Simulated scan of single mutants.
Amino acid sequence: MTTRLAINGQVYSVDDDPGTPLLYVLRDTLKLNGAKFGCGLGQCGACTVMQDGYAIVSCLMPIGVVAGSQIKTIEGLGSRAHPGVLQQAFIDEQAA
């Protein structure tokens, strides 16, 4: 089954199972590696992304649930040449 995901202003069609966690689709299918695998329990925040302006943990969120939403990852906040405010803070603080 194909799922359409709007991520960082671009629409992707993915053939992953609708029950697949968004984190795995972001990292493995779409090669967007800003969200990280941490605890896998939704407690550490390493996989946090924005869904329609709200923070969610992507390790627990099935893609079938977020289809139709606007997803923003850290890659969507700016570019290497012109980092967004949050990206610049990560750079300045040498955060992982």
Rank of each mutant, 00 (worst) to 15 (best):
E93C: 10
V14Q: 13
G78M: 08
S79F: 11
V85A: 10
F37A: 09
G53E: 12
I71D: 04
Q43P: 00
G38D: 11
P62W: 12
Q51D: 03
N8V: 10
K36S: 08
F90A: 13
I91T: 08
Q10R: 15
D16F: 00
M1G: 12
D16K: 11
S58K: 03
T20I: 06
T29I: 02
G19F: 03
L30Y: 06
L41A: 09
V66Y: 10
Q94W: 03
K31F: 08
A55R: 14
L23C: 01
V25F: 03
L26A: 01
V57E: 08
S13L: 04
N33F: 01
D92Q: 09
L32Y: 03
G78L: 12
S58D: 04
V66F: 10
E75D: 13
S79Y: 13
V14W: 10
L77P: 06
A55W: 04
G53T: 13
G68L: 08
M50K: 12
A6D: 12
T48I: 13
I91G: 05
T48L: 05
D28R: 05
A89D: 11
Y12L: 08
L23S: 00
G9I: 05
M1N: 06
P18D: 04
D17Y: 04
N8I: 03
M50T: 13
D16P: 00
G40V: 03
T2R: 12
Q70C: 05
I7Y: 07
G68Y: 13
A6S: 15
L23H: 01
C47H: 07
G64W: 09
L30R: 04
F37H: 10
C59Y: 02
V49N: 07
E75V: 09
Y54Q: 15
A67G: 08
P62A: 12
Q94D: 13
Q51Y: 01
E75I: 06
E75C: 06
C47V: 02
Q94A: 14
M50N: 11
V49R: 02
M1C: 05
Y54T: 12
S58G: 02
D52I: 04
R4G: 04
D52P: 02
Q10E: 14
L32T: 10
A96L: 15
L32C: 05
V14R: 10
V65E: 14
A46H: 07
P62R: 09
